[in-house]
């Protein structure tokens, strides 16, 4: 039986983050505050799901490479694919950070979640793009441009809502209270992230953290929001210990593959 390698786990982590966040964003499709922004957020969802597919396809290759059975779920013919990885793993195998699985809440919470993540993702992908793994580097280089746009779009919205009206300001503050505790995890490396940094495949997260703080502070200043003093941060998502939210995401997302196993769709 092939065991999981740090590279595979790292790749799955990268994939899970963007699949879960993309899935969350896509819950807005058809329900956005105005048509133009419904379209904008759907675009971001599409970018993220596209990134997830690239990472999963790479992971599927890694998982299926070894002779013998993979510990990862396979579909028809025993083949591990992007879809078996996305639709047939349970929550404890998902390596996404807790931030990405949090419920959409209102537009303020969705925006802030995207902003926190994009502010992390741009630097992550920039580093990935110059890393030693050529596949991850290629995906990172392509996705970096997307992340840059997401950061721009979400930054502008954070400023708009923070600065806009009393109500929007209050909603941003509430969103900040709800989400802040999930931001620390982005920078606390899981073992496979430490491995990736050592292998010069991925970034050293502690260095990225400084840049993230600067980015967030800069936008918060313009938005009239106070950068919180760091308190207790929730962790665990990147090692499979999630909040209750993920189970519901998976129950919905994986329903068809679970109810009708082994089918082509």
């Amino acid at each position: 039986m092939s065991s999981s390698t740090p590279l595979l786990e790292y790749t799955l982590h990268l994939a899970d983050d963007v699949l879960i966040l993309g899935h969350r964003n896509s819950e807005w499709t058809g329900h956005g505050p105005i048509l133009e922004q419904d379209i904008a957020l759907s675009n971001i969802a599409l970018d993220l799901i596209g990134q997830a597919r690239n990472f999963y396809q790479y992971a599927a290759g890694l998982a299926g490479n070894d002779s013998g059975e993979s510990i990862y779920p396979a579909g028809g013919g025993g083949v591990v694919t992007e879809d078996t990885l996305a639709f047939l793993r349970d929550g404890w195998d998902f390596r996404n950070s807790l931030l990405t699985e949090q419920t959409n809440g209102d537009w303020a919470k969705t925006i802030l979640r995207q902003f926190f993540f994009s502010a992390f993702q741009v630097d992550l992908y920039e580093q990935l793009a110059v890393g030693r793994d050529t596949t991850l580097a290629a995906i990172g280089a392509k996705a970096y441009k997307e992340a840059l746009y997401h950061l721009r779009w979400s930054s502008e919205w954070v400023i708009r809502l923070g600065d806009g009206t009393d109500e929007s300001h209050q909603r941003m503050k509430k969103a900040l209270e709800e989400l802040w505790k999930f931001t620390g995890e982005l920078y606390i490396p899981a073992p496979y992230e430490r491995w990736a940094a050592e292998a010069e495949i991925g970034p050293d997260l502690s260095q990225l953290r400084v840049r993230w703080k600067e980015r967030v502070k800069e936008v918060f200043d313009e938005a009239g929001l106070t950068y919180p003093v760091t308190e207790w941060m929730q962790t665990g998502g990147k090692e499979g210990r999630h909040t209750e939210q993920l189970g519901y995401v998976l129950a919905e997302m994986q329903f068809l593959q679970r109810a009708y196993p082994g089918c082509e769709w």
Binding site: I34, L35, E36, Q37, I39, A40, N43, W153, E156, R160
Partner: peptide, 20 residues
């Protein structure tokens, strides 16, 4: 045409609406 709160947003909305 499309709706936007300001010029910057109009450009971005145009990017999402008309250059997909």
């Amino acid at each position: 045409s499309l709706h936007a709160a300001d010029a910057q947003m109009a450009i971005e909305n145009a990017r999402d609406v008309y250059t997909r």
